[in-house]
Amino acid sequence: MRNARGYGVAGDVRHNDRVTASPAQTGSPAAHAAALWVLRVGTALTLAGVAAAALAWGSPVFTWLWLEADWPESRAWAADRAGAFVLLATAPTLAFARAWLGAKLAAAWLALLALAAAATGSWYPWLTPPAQACRILAPLALALWAVRGGPDARVQVTLRVAAALTFAAHGVEALLGRGLFVDYALSVLQRLGVGAGQSLAETLLAIVGVVDIACALALLLPRRFRAVALWMAVWGAFTAVLRVFHAGSAQWPEMLMRMANCAVPLTLVLLWKPATEKR
């Protein structure tokens, strides 16, 4: 059953009655449908990437359970793989609005992964959960979208906060001169034929950091800066693809798991598309 705006939601009357506010203040149903699918596909790819990385290399949950919580190694492995399989199983359910419980389960596991990464020795651990906000909150936004029958204000706030946190955290990492990011910047400059040294890469990175933080702040303002969201989507896609571009095709899970960094702002771009009036 579809509601008045054509969202595929759990379709009982009572459920739809809960959507008293307009699902979105702008955008045509077609744009909203496109936004929904962008978010679904982006989130599903992210889940696949996170699961693939966990199955190939193990995840921070394994390290945390085994080293910090003192679980036996075999049990920690089993829990880690179970989580990865749950992510893989829930990815297709994102296509079904009524199955929003799958999105919530995925979000919970992704949140646990971020906390475990912070607890097990990542670089500036307090930056890890916000840096992963897009991948954690994207499935949550999908669940909210389904429950509330459309991309209402809460859904959009969730998406805005997700993108803002991810970009702000990455901006801070760039300003702190994270070594991996310096190498990415060097890699890009070298591919562009700029025989650059580390200092130029660090300068570039500082600029990127400031831009990331500015974008994050702009996204949290009441006014909708569609161009900013578009830039964030492009930059999110670019930095995800950069993982493979820089370190080779074996890094594809790293690329996939960052697809939410593109999908979340792109969803906002589509949601904020001005509706064209028909005569």
Partner: peptide, 20 residues
């Protein structure tokens, strides 16, 4: 749908754990 998702998740978790 929720029961189906839960069942799927449980089966997936079991599959993951048992194939360790």
């Amino acid at each position: 749908p929720h029961a189906a998702v839960l069942l799927l998740a449980i089966l997936a978790a079991l599959a993951g754990a048992l194939t360790t």
